[in-house]
Structure formats: structure tokens, C-alpha cells
Amino acid sequence: MTLATTPARGSLLVVPLLAGGLVMIALGVYGRAHTPTGFAIGIAGFSGALAMKAWLTTGAAVLAIVQVLSALSMWGRLGVTIPPAVHRWSGRLAFLLTIPVAFHCLYALGLQYDVLRVMIHSLLGCFFYGVFTAKMLALPRKGLPGWTFPLLGGAVFVALVGLWLTSSLWFFTTFGVKV
């Protein structure tokens, strides 16, 4: 690969990154413009909305660790072979676990910036879905630079861990471990 081909390969990322940026902005604008309802929807047997969100986010974070390990295996960096299906399905399940959490956050709470922890959490949520969108749109593209998926996947992981730290960890240390 020469330097002359690098910009052309990098340009394949323009559409996925623009789409991801639009998702981030759209979620932020909706979260700010929408009048929060203040109540939970469908907490599915949990004691409350915060417990539901804390446990679903914890499940997604555990699956994100599986994502990192299986990605390292696919790239030959782990020393053991984990089937690619493990990576695909752990990612799908992790994403599905985030949907009710995000829905509740946007619908019931909106994007908030009064408390630093909550502001960081709100911005990380928008970033998570934006970078996830970019990664998913980049996957079918051939000829991308080798750093594309480690960078995008790493950003998704860091955002999810940040979401867990600013929500689930806060919940478990503030209210205790309860369902």
C-alpha cells in the first residue's frame, strides 16, 4: 500500500462516519427537544426502571467483553480460536440489551446536562449509537484501512464501558445490588 492509495481507502469511511454523526446528532436533538415523560415503560419484572437499566447495561457490558476477546481471536491476537459466530451473536445480543435502556432514557428522561455524571452519560449514549451505526455501515465495505474495525469496535466498547460506569456502577454503589 502506498500513501497515494490511503486517502482513497479512507474515503470509503465517509458515508458510514457521516451516518454515524447524524445518528449522534439526531439522538441528542431528540433527547433535548422531547419533553421527558418521567416514567418508565415496560420494566419487565425489575423493581424499577433504574434496576432494569443497570442490569441490562451490565449484560451488554459483559457481552462487550466477549466482543473484545472474540475480536482478538479473529485477528490472531489471543492464542485460542473463538468462532466468528460468537463475535456476531454476542454483538447482536449486546445491542439488543441496550435498546430498552436507550428507549427509556430518551423517552422518560431525555438528554440532561444538569449533573456532570448524567451529562456525560447522555453524551456517551448518543456517541455509542453513532459509532455503532458507523461500524455496522462500514462492515460490508471492502478495501477499508486495517485500523477501521479495531478503531470503531474499540470506540463502541469504550462508549459502552463509559455508559456502564456512569449508570450501572453508579446504581449498584448508590442503591446496592438488587433486581
Rank of each mutant, 00 (worst) to 15 (best):
C126D: 13
V14W: 11
H121G: 03
A85S: 08
T58W: 05
I99G: 02
M24E: 00
C126I: 01
L56F: 15
A19H: 08
A155Y: 05
G146E: 03
L13T: 07
G91S: 11
G42L: 14
G162A: 04
K178C: 01
A94G: 09
T133K: 02
R9D: 07
M74G: 12
L144K: 05
A4R: 15
L123M: 12
A94F: 13
P7H: 13
I25E: 00
L22E: 08
V131C: 07
A85L: 14
I25K: 03
G76A: 02
Q67P: 03
K135Q: 15
G143K: 06
I43M: 07
F46K: 01
L93D: 00
Q67K: 01
G21Q: 03
F128T: 00
P100T: 00
A64Q: 02
T35F: 05
V62P: 05
L50I: 14
P16G: 11
T166A: 05
L124E: 02
F127C: 07
T35N: 08
Y30C: 01
A159I: 05
R117D: 01
L151N: 04
M136V: 15
A54H: 03
M1P: 14
T174K: 15
A60H: 06
F95M: 13
T173C: 04
T57H: 02
A26C: 06
R92W: 15
S90N: 03
A102M: 15
L22I: 10
A108M: 07
P140A: 04
L63I: 02
S47H: 11
R9I: 08
M119Q: 10
W147D: 00
G45L: 09
A33H: 04
G130R: 09
G130W: 11
I65V: 15
G76I: 03
A51F: 06
H104M: 08
M1T: 13
R92D: 00
G28I: 02
M74S: 12
L12C: 08
L137E: 10
L160D: 02
A4S: 14
W164A: 01
L139A: 12
I65T: 10
V177Y: 09
I82V: 13
L18A: 14
V118A: 04
G42H: 02
A19C: 10
R77K: 15
L111H: 05
T37W: 10
A19S: 11
V68S: 11
T58I: 11
T57C: 01
P84N: 10
G48V: 08
F127L: 14
P83H: 13
R9M: 12
M74Q: 12
H34L: 03
